[in-house]
Computed example of a mutant assay.
Amino acid sequence: MAKKEEKINLGRVVLFRNFTAQKAEDLNTGDKDVCEILDVEDDQGEYIRAGYYVLPKSDATVLSNEDGLVYVYNVSLPYLEEVAHLAKVEENIIIGQAFLYPGRNMPKTSPNAFQWCMFVGVFLLGAFAIFAG
């Protein structure tokens, strides 16, 4: 029987999308999509990753409860869109750097020994075909 893998609790992120809200009681119940609760997936020092957001810790109000840390953000929708966009840009840069590190996939400007041998071989075969025919 396989053991159930225990997930490490890094905390939760609570995003209030009403910029004027200072606490949960300030939110209007008629507003659409005003709160989002996400688990923290990765703690990168100054930033935390939750869902498809990479959020700076300096913008959060950090609270604690018996389940762990809670990062509370009072943000507007443009802020969230920009944070999500920056997370995608960062991911694309990391993926690009993973495949373009020095020594791999780097274009070489001069031919190597194998290419010189191939060139000489093709030249000799061409010369032999001309003089033999």
Rank of each mutant, 00 (worst) to 15 (best):
residue 5 E to L: 13
residue 9 N to H: 08
residue 10 L to Q: 04
residue 11 G to M: 11
residue 18 N to Q: 13
residue 18 N to E: 15
residue 20 T to H: 11
residue 21 A to D: 02
residue 24 A to Y: 01
residue 24 A to T: 10
residue 25 E to L: 06
residue 26 D to C: 05
residue 28 N to P: 09
residue 28 N to W: 02
residue 30 G to W: 08
residue 33 D to K: 09
residue 35 C to W: 00
residue 38 L to G: 02
residue 44 Q to R: 15
residue 45 G to H: 08
residue 45 G to N: 08
residue 47 Y to S: 03
residue 47 Y to V: 02
residue 48 I to F: 03
residue 51 G to C: 05
residue 53 Y to N: 14
residue 56 P to R: 09
residue 57 K to F: 11
residue 57 K to S: 06
residue 57 K to D: 07
residue 58 S to M: 01
residue 58 S to K: 03
residue 59 D to S: 10
residue 60 A to F: 03
residue 61 T to Y: 02
residue 63 L to R: 14
residue 67 D to Q: 12
residue 67 D to R: 14
residue 68 G to C: 09
residue 70 V to E: 12
residue 73 Y to K: 00
residue 74 N to C: 08
residue 75 V to Y: 08
residue 76 S to L: 00
residue 76 S to N: 09
residue 77 L to P: 00
residue 78 P to Q: 02
residue 79 Y to S: 03
residue 79 Y to V: 10
residue 80 L to K: 01
residue 81 E to P: 00
residue 84 A to Y: 02
residue 88 K to A: 12
residue 90 E to D: 13
residue 92 N to C: 01
residue 95 I to F: 01
residue 95 I to L: 11
residue 100 L to Q: 06
residue 102 P to A: 15
residue 103 G to D: 03
residue 103 G to C: 03
residue 106 M to Y: 13
residue 106 M to W: 15
residue 109 T to R: 08
residue 116 W to G: 00
residue 116 W to M: 14
residue 118 M to V: 14
residue 119 F to S: 06
residue 124 L to M: 13
residue 127 A to N: 06
residue 129 A to C: 08
residue 133 G to I: 06
